[in-house]
Design a protein around this nucleic acid. Structure first.
Lengths: 179, 179
DNA sequence: ACAAAAATGTAGCACATGCTACAATCCTGA
DNA sequence: TCAGGATTGTAGCATGTGCTACATTTTTGT
């Protein structure tokens, strides 16, 4: 929960990058240390334990996702649900966004069984997604529907059924109309 | 890819149960062996390697999910999209179903980075979900939408935002109407 | 300037992991 | 019956894990 000290902050960026590239499960101290240009010994010294360290990394990534969202479509006004969904889906195809969403999925599946920190971070990210969605909708009440559908699209894509995701998107266009 | 021998089949059920209860990531040879009443040595003997073993376990679980689906709502005719979604969502609240869906999420997040076997199983399960959905819909064309939404509901629930999932379900009822 | 504290390097421990070597037992068919 | 394969137990290896002990250097406050 405590905010990172300056020393910690400097280490967090390269480690977050490593996690985004290689996943959370496989993130062990030695590779993380190497990515940050230090040693496992130092990571424990600065962060006390691996759990605490991973907590910081997850929060850092969450923050990164949030600021990413904030600057995305920031200049556009509220739009119909389907327009927003389509635009976000386009963005989600960009490789940098995909790896972020992949971590988000991984985090969610960990949260189901994980410790309090993991659950809190997952919940936090979900909340930010929801707020951001509502802020861009002509009908903010639809935010839960749009978010739910987006999460579903991500799952199908990672399950290797991007085609079904696209069919779903197309079908939803007719259903939602101009809401 | 090869079907399990009788000897393998006997071991698979308790191991699948262990995985459903404890997750895929933490499934190492010794606990799996203990669950199946044998030794790690024997597991390797019967399955050659852990990767092959996990492949069998995943396929076993997939099969279990498929037959579970086949017998679920089997006596009911085709129904409107929202009715089906609501019914399935109710079923998903049952603890035995929830742990299955949890594994499904975990498998999906693994497939994103995983080997061919993992990806194939994930894709297979998604396909079966889709077919099953289409078979129960008055308008089978809506199957992708319904499935996508369901996956999204699962994600939100595991992320600790079941409330948002429920809001989403309620809102979708108005949108879908009687289709 | 200098003692205390912070920061770092080196080495290694204790444990869990997948997997193997080797020997012993069990079971089958001729 | 009994040779040969199938099956299993015991012990252990090599590697990766989180973390620590200890000594050393660097920084900081007075």
């Amino acid at each position: 929960m405590t905010a990172p000290t300056p020393t910690q902050a400097k280490l967090l960026m390269p480690m977050a990058d490593y996690v985004l590239e290689n996943g959370l499960q496989t993130a062990s101290l030695r590779p993380l240390a190497k990515a940050a240009g230090t040693s496992d010994r130092m990571l424990i010294y600065h962060f006390d334990s691996k759990d605490v360290l991973l907590g910081h990394i997850m929060r850092f990534i969450a923050e990164q996702m949030a600021t990413g969202l904030a600057t995305t479509l920031s200049s556009t006004g509220p739009m119909p649900a389907h327009t927003l969904l389509t635009r976000v889906w386009d963005l989600a195809q960009r490789s940098e966004m995909r790896r972020t969403l992949r971590i988000w999925l991984e985090l969610t599946s960990m949260a189901a069984r994980g410790d309090d920190t993991t659950q809190a971070v997952a919940q936090d990210i979900a909340d930010r997604f929801l707020d951001w969605t509502a802020a861009h909708l002509k009908t903010p009440t639809l935010a839960p529907v749009v978010l739910t559908h987006f999460e579903g699209l991500v799952v199908l894509q990672e399950a290797g059924r991007a085609d079904v995701a696209n069919q779903s998107l197309a079908a939803l266009k007719d259903i939602l109309g101009e809401r």
